[in-house]
Structure formats: C-alpha cells, structure tokens
Write a protein that binds this DNA or RNA. Sequence first.
DNA 1: CGACTGCCGACTGTCGACAGTTTTACAAAC
DNA 2: GTTTGTAAAACTGTCGACAGTCGGCAGTCG
Lengths: 235, 235
Amino acid sequence: MALSTMAPKAFIQHQNLVEQVADYLTQAIIQQHFLPGERLSEVQLSKDLGVSRAPVREAARLLESRGLLISKPRRGFFVRALNAVEFEDVFDLRLCLERHAIDRLAERYSVEAQRALEQQVEVLCEAALGNDETRRIEEDLQFHRLMLHYAGNERLLKAFDGLTHELRLCIALITKTHDAPDTIATSHFKLLEALASGSSAVCREAIDYHIGVARKFVVRGVGEPGELGSQESQR
Amino acid sequence: MALSTMAPKAFIQHQNLVEQVADYLTQAIIQQHFLPGERLSEVQLSKDLGVSRAPVREAARLLESRGLLISKPRRGFFVRALNAVEFEDVFDLRLCLERHAIDRLAERYSVEAQRALEQQVEVLCEAALGNDETRRIEEDLQFHRLMLHYAGNERLLKAFDGLTHELRLCIALITKTHDAPDTIATSHFKLLEALASGSSAVCREAIDYHIGVARKFVVRGVGEPGELGSQESQR
DNA sequence: CGACTGCCGACTGTCGACAGTTTTACAAAC
DNA sequence: GTTTGTAAAACTGTCGACAGTCGGCAGTCG
C-alpha cells in the first residue's frame, strides 16, 4: 500500500457520527434552515440523518455547550435566539479576550508570530476580494485565532474558540456585514503595526477600534429581544 | 395545601440522572478518588452507580466540555491532568475575565451591587473562620461570581463559570491553600474599596494583586507536566 | 360562554444489546 | 531476553425499544 506516502496523521476519517451530526446541525443553524427558537425533534433528526437518537442527543449536548442550542428538561432542544443585549455581551467578551491576548502577544512578539500573522492577513485580503462571504469570515476569525494562539495561553484560545461559535451565529443573523476589502485590509494591518510597536497602549487602542467596528456592523439591525436566549442560572 | 406560601419556582427537583452522575463524577475528581490521567470505564461506572451507560456518557460529555475530562475517540474518557503551564493559563484567563469585569462594574456600581458584595464578604469571612475548606472556597468563588454578575455581562459570567470548574480542580490538586482568615478578609475588602473609589486604575491594581496572591498560593508545588492535559487542535 | 378536568398523542429519558475496535495476554521466533 | 504475531477479552460506538412525562384537545361543569 502507498500509505507511507501519506501524511502521518490519521487520514482515514474516523469521524464520529456525533461530529458529523454536530457539523450538520451547526451548518443548518448558521444558514438559518432552523429558525431561532425553533424546537428540534430528536426522532425527526434521527430519521432525516439516518442515524439513531444517541448520536443526535450527544451532538445536541455538544451544541448546547457551544451556546447554539438550549436544552429544556423533558422538552427537548431549541435553537438559540439572541437578543440585542446578548449580542453586545458576546462582543464585549470578545473584546475582553482579545485585549488580554494582544497585550500578552506584544510582550513576546516573535518573528514566527509576525510572519504567521502577516501571511494570514494576505490570505484574508485575498479572500475579501472574492465572493465567498463564509470564507472571508473564516479567514478573519483565523487571523484572530492566530493572535490568541501566539499570545501563549491555550486556555485563552479555547475560550475564544468557544465564543466563535456564538460569534458566527451573530454574524449569520445579520444579512450584510460585507466590509469593503480595503477596510478589512487596513483594519488588520493596523493591528500588525500596533504589535510591531510593542506599546501596550497602542495595541489596546488598535484592538478596541478593530472590534468596535465589527460590533457596530453587527449590532445595527438587531431588533426585538428574543426570550429564548437567556438560560436561567443553574445553581 | 400551603403551597401558596412557597416559592413559585418548581420545588420538586426533576434532577436528571445525567446531572446526578455529573455531580458524582465532579466530586470524585475534585476529591481525587480518580487520579489525574486515569481512565474511566463507562461500564464500570454504570455498574457502580446502578444506571445504564447512556446517562454516564452524557455526563462524561458534560464534564469534557467543562474541562474535567478528556475524551479520546474509541479510547474513552480520562481524568484531566494539568501541568504547570496549564495552571498558569487558567489563572491568566481568570485575570483576564476579572479585570474586564471589575472595570465594567466600576462604571455601573449600584448600591444594590455594593450591598450584595459586602454581604458576601461577610459570609466569606465567617466561612474562613470555620474548618470547612470546601465551603470557604465556594464562598470565595461566589463573591467573584457576584462581581461578574453585577458587571452586567451574562456571557462573561458564563465564561467565568466554565472556568471555575477547572479552577476548583486546580485548587483541589494543591493540598494546602489555607490562607489566614484576616488575609482573606482584607484581600476582599480591598476590592470593595477599589470599586467604591470608581477609579479604573485602582480597580485593576486591586484585582491584579488579589488574583496574583491566589495564583502564587496555588502554583507553588506544581511539579511535572502531565501529558494528558493538552488536547490537540481539532480543525 | 368561560374555566376546569381528564384523556390522547408525541416526545424525552433511560435501558439492554450488538458490532467493530482497541488493548492485553500469551506464545513463538530471533 | 527481546521482539513479533496471534487470539481472547474488554471496551466504545451505535442501535432499537420501553416507560414516564409534557402539551394540546375534547368534554364537562358552573
């Protein structure tokens, strides 16, 4: 067999049914095939996907932990609905994490990190010129993931990853976030400049501005508060 | 019936088996009945607890999302082991969240928030005098939960709650964190003073000091890096 | 005509079982 | 003694099924 020529990491995707179902559900929610607040029937999903209820349940639990679904005991799972306050909260938390990250990163800004970020900005700019909105968003998020990664705190990155699921939901709920390509480029270049300067204050100002722009784009157009968004405290 | 005199919220606790199993597992891990890195057998747990494997699996998934367990495909669940770096990361993230929270809280410091926090400090001081170490930790965490809550960002609080599970694990892995009662008291009173001052800089200094002390107490005595702690990136 | 009560359908929570895979134990060969 | 190959045992991933519960609807009483 020619297996030796392949990447050492497992290529045969042993992708669990759970992950497949989770991916399917995530896409369906992001693309609004399920409306916010809608109830998801486990049996219906099992039938549609041709699997049993066990993986569907586990996938739903996974999406619940990611904030895309809400579980109500003996009632089932509902698609998370976000009101304006929750929108603000998500972006505020993002600001919190990224402020900290850029601060840490400025302290330990290696050439490796610099090159990786510059390269990602190029990829992002290229994506911004194309028509694929989804890819643009993903490359944008990837840039920020890299920032968090090189900040040197994996737990911080994990928290950010947890937030990105909701972030994608926020972005998806707004039909148009299409910035002009040059806006995207300069906005990210400013972050690189700030990092290169090494100044904590400059970095903070840059990230505040950067996220402030994104927030403004998204928050505009959010209407009524949905009542399904906030799960009550569980202690 | 005298039901009308009781709280309107549901009294009969519909506690799922999943939650019960999750609580049991959490306690067992915190109290080190399961050692870090140890493999958990689903069938064994089902037999021990007298339930089927389904709720055990779901509870394990829940604890995985909380960072107390690690799942390896086709291998099962393992108790999370934390190395020194991960310890630092947890406290660094905590610092990140609480810095942001105290900043937000200082902007909107209501008398209601002030009274709630002061009351909680009293409860904490009382707990510090007793012998119940667990209760002291819980009351301490509860104080910080209140801070996050009154900061006005529920998503921030949720992130903190997610972190507290790992935080408890960190604390549990250290045998002695026993601060003197007066240290605990003054440490928290300083936070109240800082909030009352309304100065962002003062607040930041106070929270940095507060968490710095806690971190020092915990990080000391962490030895070898455990290999099970870091799950590789999944994208 | 409105409110309450009991029943019905649908669904979730839980269970036991089967198939495929990983681990372990053991024997054989170098 | 170390390594390799094989087989059994244990375990996870998945499935179908049953029981208890929830929401809605019809029937009944005031």
